[in-house]
Design a protein around this nucleic acid. Structure first.
Lengths: 205, 205
DNA sequence: GAATAATTTTGAGCGTACTCGGTTATGAGT
DNA sequence: ACTCATAACCGAGTACGCTCAAAATTATTC
């Protein structure tokens, strides 16, 4: 059958299809019940595979969350980068990046916190973990680019300030103290801290 | 027996003695093998109590680590605060606080990381968790006090900058990327970031 | 197309943190 | 002294993430 030249074989297709089922099952269960309330057994059942198969596709439950959440996170970053490009002020542009990320991570607070926890404390050798770290790298780069709009600032400082802003975001999205706050309050807190960081207070504002 | 007026009863004493045994057992096992390599059963055995009893005194394994590590952390903070008091420059004084904390948390890197993880993601209603959060509060206050030495800086900014410095410390002590670094490298990284932070809006350095 | 190799699938089983119902020790009331 | 309520203690049992050795499926070779 040379007509179907680009069929990568049944095995490959089955594998992809199975991964899709697992991904969907995990996404739906996680977003409906929260990662802690879902067992790997439930995911396996919903995906209609054995538990062994589940862990053949994702080495840990955490990897499953990363796999699912990375997609949403990437979308949030893209929309933020786009918005930042159309924003004049440096602080406002930074916040244009921050805002969708915070929103994304707080759609389901428990999942968002767990995602960030795994990103920092999980095994960096796992595939989806690496992908997640690349995403945070993109955020750092995007923020550094914005800060570099200020001609007085050298690139090295911009990169370092970007990392600091990421740290500020992380703490404000994870610390239990902030769990009961509204999204707007969290964003407000981050904005205040970034403003202080950038030294806006000296000029006036 | 009115002579021993302040004896709080056998029950109280037994309880205290048992808690001591548990604390010692946990401390020794954790520091020798690392928190992940020690089972709660081993701790119970070494303390010579049943597992049920163990969890009567500490609600989770994480609480056990907090219980043990809070003591060391408190010592590190005290020594840092003392050293900072005798240090002239603001950056140097801040680093005098940072240095012993980093050292303490990296005596056994796995335990230090887990400690910080639980501090951020654990149940804030548990007793030892609260104690731990108070300690980080003390660090923030101490740093804020140092920053306030600069007469130009108002207290609100000092407090906020202190929180940012804590965030910088946290990331540098927890992120997997930094696990393979030496203590000095980590401290150097933190110093660079704090310098950038404090100098972000200034012209020179 | 048979034989062989490679990959994928599976669920019973394991280790471990933690629970729970029953038991025992302690001290207050009389 | 005796009773009784309460606090402390215990370990068998549970839940759940994850492993592993064997089985099933797919690819490859001759």
């Amino acid at each position: 059958m040379p007509a179907e030249s680009r069929t990568p074989g049944r095995r490959e297709r089955n594998k992809q299809e199975k991964l899709d089922r697992i991904t969907s099952a995990a996404r739906e269960l996680f977003s409906e019940y929260g990662v802690d309330e879902v067992t790997t057994q439930q995911i396996a059942d919903k995906a209609d595979v054995g538990t062994g198969t589940l862990f053949f596709y994702a080495k840990t439950k955490a990897e499953l969350l990363l796999l699912v959440h990375n997609v949403k996170y990437a979308e949030a970053i893209d929309s933020g980068v786009t918005a930042a490009g159309a924003t004049a002020g440096i602080l406002d542009a930074v916040m244009a990046i921050v805002q969708p990320i915070v929103a994304c991570n707080r759609v389901q607070i428990e999942n968002g916190r767990t995602y960030l926890r795994e990103l920092v404390f999980g095994d960096p050798d796992e595939h989806h973990h690496k992908v997640g770290l690349e995403l945070t790298g993109r955020v750092d780069d995007a923020i550094a680019a914005i800060l570099s709009r200020d001609g007085d600032r050298n690139e090295q400082d911009a990169a370092q300030l970007a990392r600091i802003i990421s740290a500020i975001m992380f703490i404000n999205m994870t610390a239990t103290v902030f769990m009961s706050l509204s999204d707007d309050s969290v964003i407000g807190n981050i904005r205040d801290q970034v403003r202080t960081l950038l030294g806006a207070h000296r000029v006036g504002v």
